[in-house]
Write a protein that binds this DNA or RNA. Structure first.
Length: 560
RNA sequence: GCGCCAUUAGCUCAACUGGAUAGAGCGUUGGUCUACGGAACCAAAGGCUAGGGAUUCGAAUUCCUUAUGGCGCACCA
């Protein structure tokens, strides 16, 4: 039931469109005033009447006969509505039981493709805590858009191109050996790279450039080494992606575009956009208040932006996307503004469909992370410490639990994910173990715990609850019903704003409301229709919380 | 220097896009255990929404300005 539309439908005001009325409908600060409200102040100027009078007059347009609303009142220029509780209750509960895991989904995206560029691993570099945001924000958006019916293409734009791979090979040839790398995996490779950066002299720098050239020219040994490092990296991130429930449809990285840049450069040339400046080729963006976009270095080599231009064009040609999202830290705001503008100047009408989904930076309590100084928090360490803590708490509180490890995995990994998704993505994060390891309050653990309780009640009841006819829901129950009803909108809003935190906050909010109800109202020993109703409410809450956490990549254990 | 972003309770953050008394969690203080799971619940204290202007019926939200912090500003990605 779309109450906003219902209200807008009933009202006719000269000089005010239905859309404007629809958008004016707001939620009152507390539910004693009503469930919906229409502030009449902005109509006052158009109609040249006082808002109080307008509200009073509009009140007459509503009857309660159709059973949608239970009360309409005019208060100080606001028109307040209370919905018919039992009608809303029945429609919400039946929707949840009919749709189950699909409750909250939609088909608005049918026929549209969305590309999401996220996580983007750099070859030979382990994940640190800074990589968590792009990975889980991208992963959540991936699921949210799928849930809304879109065809989604997840792209891991591999960082597999650049002079650093020449350095890496050079370092390996000097200091590395096969056994060590096989034993130490990607961290051993990273150590070589770090060592190069601190110890390499002029001669090694030259060697590194030569190795990079060899990779580019298809030299067998150099490429075999590179492919080896690449496979080590993919194997390593694969285990992390599995734990975080992250998937990709394409691993086309920077190297993939090596042979796709020349046509872009030609096109820029033909369209007269390419200019020479200090020996380099640029697109001048001065008229748009931006520094120039570098296309070719003075030595003729391509750059980051060149490959991103080629990638955007390739994606448009290949997927014909409705939108293409780049989940990348705000550090690169200017870069994406430049690339999008260049595509617009090239006459690509779809340049407007490119979206930089920017998120905040992660730092440590004592400042920015630095791989070279060894000031890093590795992602796998964070995950395993979360899981260990979850396991320890289970051992303490529920030692007889059957599948402890599986449960600890869901709880621990969930906490790590949730920490990166709960706040507006633009917020900077100062990483601290104290925070991710906190399993109380507004956390995924709290939501999972609520689910475990709900599940336990249902199990003890041995039945799912049956239909009820005349049960009158109380205030606490109705708060839960309203929260349940708002889930589909929360999912849509999260998609519109590229903001998974809206779903995360929804989950906590619903869990809080359910817990308040749970503490106050007996379920199993309730009299009359209260028992079947409350069991249904419990089942519906459990299902909806599972759906919400599922969108974030967080599993819900039956017991914990 | 220029540009973008941020600034809300002691701390970490919300606030349905301009609506009614700005809400949560953590922390603090005090309560709730003969239970459907205490990883929970209730209550109290805590706010001139960084400062100052402007816009209007109405501003945490829009505009200007100042301050503080972050990020970026041509051959890295």
């Amino acid at each position: 039931m779309d109450y906003k539309a219902y209200i807008a439908d009933k009202i006719r005001l000269d000089g005010v469109t239905k859309q404007e009325i629809y958008e004016s409908v707001a939620l009152p600060p507390n539910s004693e005033m009503g469930d919906y409200a229409l502030p009449c102040f902005k109509f006052s100027k158009i109609l040249r009447k006082s808002p109080v009078v307008i509200a009073e007059e509009l009140k007459g347009k509503f009857t309660l006969d159709d059973g949608v609303l239970s009360e309409v009142s005019a208060v100080n220029g606001y028109l307040n509505f209370k919905v018919n509780k039992s009608a809303l209750t029945k429609s919400v509960l039946s929707a949840i039981f009919e749709q189950g895991g699909g409750y909250g989904s939609s088909d608005v995206g049918n026929g549209k493709t969305i590309c999401i560029d996220y996580s983007s691993v750099n070859i030979a570099k382990p994940f640190h805590i800074g990589h968590l945001s792009t990975t889980v924000i991208g992963g959540a958006l991936y699921r949210i858009y799928k849930f809304l019916g879109y065809n989604v293409v997840g792209i891991n734009h591999l960082g597999d191109y650049g002079t650093q791979f020449g350095k890496l090979i050079c370092a390996y040839k000097h200091w590395g050996n096969k056994e060590e790398v096989e034993r130490g995996g990607i961290h051993a490779v990273n150590d070589l790279y770090v060592r190069f950066n601190s110890e390499a002299d002029e001669q090694m720098e030259n060697e590194a450039r030569e190795y990079f050239r060899l990779i580019e020219n298809g030299d067998k040994e150099a490429n075999e080494l590179f492919e080896w490092f690449k496979s080590l990296t993919l194997k390593y991130v694969g285990t992390i992606y599995d734990r975080l429930k992250i998937t990709f449809d394409s691993y086309a990285g920077e190297r993939f575009y090596t042979d796709k840049m020349q046509p872009v450069i030609d096109e820029l040339n033909e369209k007269g956009l390419l200019k020479e400046s200090d020996g380099a080729k640029i697109v001048d963006l001065e008229p748009y208040g931006m520094s120039p976009c570098l296309i070719l270095r003075s030595d003729g080599a391509s750059l980051y932006a060149t490959r991103d231009l080629a990638a955007a064009i390739y994606r448009k040609n290949t997927y014909d996307f409705y939108k293409c999202l780049y989940v990348v830290a705000y550090q690169q705001n200017l870069h994406f503004k430049q690339v999008f503008k260049v595509l617009e100047l090239m006459g690509k009408p779809w340049a407007k469909d490119l979206v930089h989904v920017a998120y905040g930076m992660v730092s440590l309590e004592d400042g920015a992370m630095s791989t070279r100084k060894g000031k890093v928090v590795w992602l796998e360490d964070v995950i395993s410490r979360c899981v260990e803590k979850a396991k320890a708490i289970i051992e303490e509180k529920n030692p007889r639990l059957e599948n402890k490890d599986e449960t600890a995995e869901k709880v621990g990994v969930g906490a790590a994910i949730f920490g990166a998704l709960y706040n507006n993505k633009i917020k900077d994060i100062v990483f601290s173990y104290d925070k991710v390891l906190s399993f109380e309050g507004e956390t995924s653990v709290y939501v999972q715990y609520t689910c475990a309780r709900a599940n336990s009640v249902l199990e003890k009841a041995g039945e799912a609850g049956t239909a009820f006819e005349n049960y009158e829901v109380n205030a606490l129950e109705f708060e839960v019903i309203k929260a349940l009803a708002s889930f589909p909108d929360a999912v849509k809003e999260a998609a519109e704003k590229y903001e998974p935190s809206i779903v995360a906050r929804f989950a906590v909010d619903l869990a809080q409301k359910y817990n308040k109800f749970y503490i106050e109202c007996k379920i199993l020993t309730a009299e009359g229709e209260a028992k079947p109703f409350r069991l249904m409410l419990t089942g519906a809450t459990l299902q909806t919380l599972k759906n919400a956490l599922g969108l974030l990549g967080i599993g819900v254990p039956d017991k914990m």
